[in-house]
Amino acid sequence: MPMSILSQLRNLAASASLALLAAPAIAAAPSADLKPESGTVKLGMQPWLGYGQWYVADEQGHFAANGLQGVELINFNEDKDMNAALASGRIDAGNLATHTAMAMVSAGLPVKIVMLLDQSTSADALIVDPSIKTLADLKGKAVAYEEGTTSDILLHSALAKAGMTLADIRPVPMPASSAGSALIAGQVPAAVTYEPYLSVAAQQNPNIRTLYQGSDDPGLISDVLVVRDEMLQKRPGQVLALLRSWEAAYRFYQANPQQGQAIIARGVGASADELDSAFAGVKFYSLADNQRDLQVQGEFINTSMRHITKAAGDAGLLPQPVSPAQLLDTRFVEALK
C-alpha cells in the first residue's frame, strides 16, 4: 500500500466521520441463537484463493442454509477500490490482508476484524539464486518486490530477522508477477513474490530456492474478514450467519479437498492444477482456530499483531499502531463456541 493509498484512507475516514458520530454504540454481545436480519449482504472479494471458502459456501448453499436471504460476492481488482467501497457503505464487509485492515482502522475507517480467514505459509516467499546462501548475503544486493503489498511486508520481516533494513539492500520495485521473471533472467539475485509465480520460477530454474517464507514469521502474511461498524450494530445476526457459513464451507473443504479446490479455482478464475502448490502453501482458519488465536493470550494478539505492526510500520504502510480493542470484534466467534 503506497503512501498515496494511506492518503486515500485518511480522506475516506474524514468523509465517513459524520456517519461515525451519528452511529450508536456497539451492541451487546450477540446470542448464538440470533436469527439473520433481512436483506442481502454485500461482501467484497479479490481473486485470491485464501478467500475461497466463500465460493464454497455460495456453491454449496451454506449461506441459505444459515438463514441468509442472499450474499453478493463483489470482486475488486485493487485494494483502493475496496477501501472506498467499505468507507462509503457500498459493501458491508470485505476480505483484506491483515496489514491493510490494520491501516484502515489506524486511519479511522469504521470497520472491525471479526474473523481470521487464512495465512500464507509458503505461498509468499523470498526466493534467491545460488549466490545468496543466507539472509545476511542480501546486504548490498538487488531485490525485486512489489511495494505496498504482502511482498513488501515479508521482505521487511526477513531483513529485520537479519538485523538489516531496506537501506542495506538495493530495492528494485516491480509487480509481483514480474519479480520472479527478473530473478530467472538474472537481472536480480533475489525476489519476493507469491503463487503461482513461485511455482513458475521453480519450474523454469531448478537452482532457485526459497530463503524466507510466510511460515518463518507465522501469521505475518494473512487475511481477515472486516465488517463495517454499522453492520455490527444493526445486523449482528447476519454477521453470525456469515461466520457459520464460512465454517460449514471449511468443513466441506476438509472432507472434500479436491471438490473444494475445484470450486475455489473456478472462483478465482484458474484451474485447480495451476493452483496445486498454492493450496499447499495456504492455511485456512476454522472457527475453533479463531476462538483460540483471538483470545487475549492467543497467537494473533500476542504474536502476529506485533510482528505485522513492526513490518508494516518499517515499510511505511501503517500510519500508527492500533490496539486489539480498536482492531477486533471477537464477540461473534465467541458467541459460536
Rank of each mutant, 00 (worst) to 15 (best):
I264P: 02
F76D: 02
L20Q: 14
D217R: 10
E299R: 13
T100S: 09
N95K: 01
S286K: 04
I5A: 09
G44R: 07
N11M: 14
T134N: 09
S177Y: 05
M115T: 12
G61Y: 06
G108M: 07
N205E: 11
R170D: 06
P175Q: 06
L43M: 15
A16P: 00
I301Y: 01
D329V: 06
G44N: 08
M231W: 08
A280F: 05
I127G: 08
E72Q: 13
G316A: 07
T193K: 01
G269A: 05
E334P: 04
R235C: 04
M305Q: 13
L220I: 09
A93W: 01
P130G: 07
R251F: 00
V192I: 15
Q238K: 05
P47S: 09
Q258L: 12
L49S: 14
V41D: 03
S4W: 11
V333M: 00
V268E: 01
N66S: 01
S222E: 11
R292I: 15
L317N: 10
T303A: 11
T193F: 04
A280H: 13
F300Y: 14
L6K: 13
D168Y: 01
G148V: 08
T309D: 12
S245T: 06
H156F: 12
V239Y: 01
A32P: 14
A270C: 03
K139T: 10
G148L: 08
T210W: 00
A19H: 12
L116N: 12
A29L: 12
G316Y: 04
L294E: 04
I263V: 11
L328A: 00
F76M: 07
I5T: 14
Q203C: 06
L232N: 03
N205T: 05
Y212Q: 04
G267C: 13
L166Y: 07
A25T: 15
A107F: 02
A64L: 08
L225F: 02
